[in-house]
Structure formats: structure tokens, C-alpha cells
Amino acid sequence: MDTSQLLKGVLDLAVLAVLRKEDGYGYDVLRRLRQGGLDGVGDASVYGTLRRLYHAGLLTSYVVPSEEGPHRKYYSLNEPGRERLLESGKTWKSFARTLDDLLGEGA
């Protein structure tokens, strides 16, 4: 099964999750996702998702000037973002359990 299709539905949750402990700029977020095992995630998809979550009021952003290279825009989880993460996390866990049960021993 193509994981990129699965990823589409849960990329929001994954991005919120990797920003929970520490703020990060776009490339940071991308690296953390890849390190976490989501190899198939597209660069542009992550940046697009960050913009969408930012417009939805779940993230705040601030710019940190960098000595080498361009300045970096950091994103951090705000209160609505944390609430959404909690909520979506519960939904995901219950969904994953349901699917596990459905698959049973077969998979």
C-alpha cells in the first residue's frame, strides 16, 4: 500500500506532533518527520501543511536571523494547536485500534 496516500490524512497530526516539544523551522520539521520514520513525506507538502496550520490559528511563527544563509522562520504550537493535537491524537489512536481489530491476526 502506498504510504503517501495514508500520509495525506495524517500529515497535520504528524507536524503538530513533532512541534510539541520544540519549536522548529520548516526544514527542521521535515527532518524530524523523516527521522521519525516518515520517509515518503514531500518537502513541499510539509511547507504547505505548515502554512495551512498557521492560517488555521494552530501555530505561531517568528523569524530568527541566521548568520550563514537566509533567516529562518520558526513555528511553535500555541494553545489551540495543543488542543487540536490532543483531540486528533485521540481520534487517531481509536481509529488505529479499530483498524488493528479489523485486521486481527491476518496482518
Binding site: 523551522y25 521535515l30 518537502d43 513541499a44 511547507y47 544563509g69
Partner: peptide
């Protein structure tokens, strides 16, 4: 304004990847 924001993010990313 939105394009500028995107280029801040993704533009920096492209530069970093190139580096």
C-alpha cells in the same frame, strides 16, 4: 503577502538543500 511568507519558508529550504 502570502507568496512572500511561502518564499521565506520554502525559499530558505531550497537554498539550504542546494547548500
Amino acid at each position: 503577502a502570502e507568496v512572500a511568507e511561502i518564499m521565506d519558508d520554502a525559499g530558505a529550504h531550497v537554498v539550504e538543500v542546494a547548500d
